[in-house]
Amino acid sequence: MSVLLVAEISGANIALDATAKAVAAATALGPITVLAAGEGVDPAPLAALDGVAKVLHVEGADYGHQMPEALTDLLLSLAPGFTHIVAPATTSAKAAFPRLAALLDVMVISDVVAVESADTFARPIYAGNAIQTVKSNDPVKVLTIRTAGFDAAGSTGSAPVETLDPVAASDLASWIEDRVVTSDRPELTSAEVVVSGGRGVGSEESFALIEGLADTMDAAVGASRAAVDSGYAPNDKQVGQTGKVVAPDLYIACGISGAIQHLAGMKDSKIIVAINKDEEAPIFQVADFGLVADLFDAVPEMTEKLK
């Protein structure tokens, strides 16, 4: 058995936490070869990950832009010999991996939360309301790992790095631009604390209250779909079935009702706090600590007292 694991890379930036968690999840499947495909990437941090036997480094603008057509062509050329092809379940892997699986004539197994054996994996279905365990009868397993539940692999290794040439570019699609908002806050999926706002926050301006509490707690900011749809927060903050999945030590939901699609993205958090003025809100059924209050009073008070 041997694993080809695609590191999550955008441009030159390695998402080391997500990649290290996927490495940890895949360690039981055999020696891991990590693919570092991007633009201007320093593969050293990947070579240091425990469990990594080798790093393949490939440079190309299309890889840096995470174009699925190009990444799939590259992966197809590397696939022979590997029994498992693995990546963290990011938007880029979710775009490329099913494409790769179809070309290998195998089923993709998305959002794996537990590796039971070399061919058996658990994954949530129905917005996390059920966990399905499936056994793959395909010759190659193509998996994306939902990283939230795994501890990151350590960084004490030193695997060799081999440089490869990119494969010929595909002309099916071209990158135009990224509209990426950078912030100094911790990244949503790896933060220890997440403060999220929902429709109850009421406006884009008042979303500053959520950000204020987040900054005081050195937390990442999250949002419900309703808050994103209403323009209070950008799309990359959405937590839920069809947004990001987080499992921080502390998740504080402010003005969020607790629809199953939202819970799907945060109910594995260690401690959940809900601040909501409606005592009947379903979020209180999953909250360790619930505060029935107007968030416009409670959130500033909490921010002040934690300073």
């Binding site: 197994i109 309301n129 502390l250 706090v273 999953v286 909250a287 360790d288 909490m302 007292k305």
Partner: peptide
Amino acid sequence: PRLELVKTDEPAARAAGQIVGSVDELISKL
């Protein structure tokens, strides 16, 4: 199908939490 269904489980339920009376109480719990 290529994937054989082994089993379908209910996800682990969260233990019931508590309602706190104030921001101060919430902070001390945290």
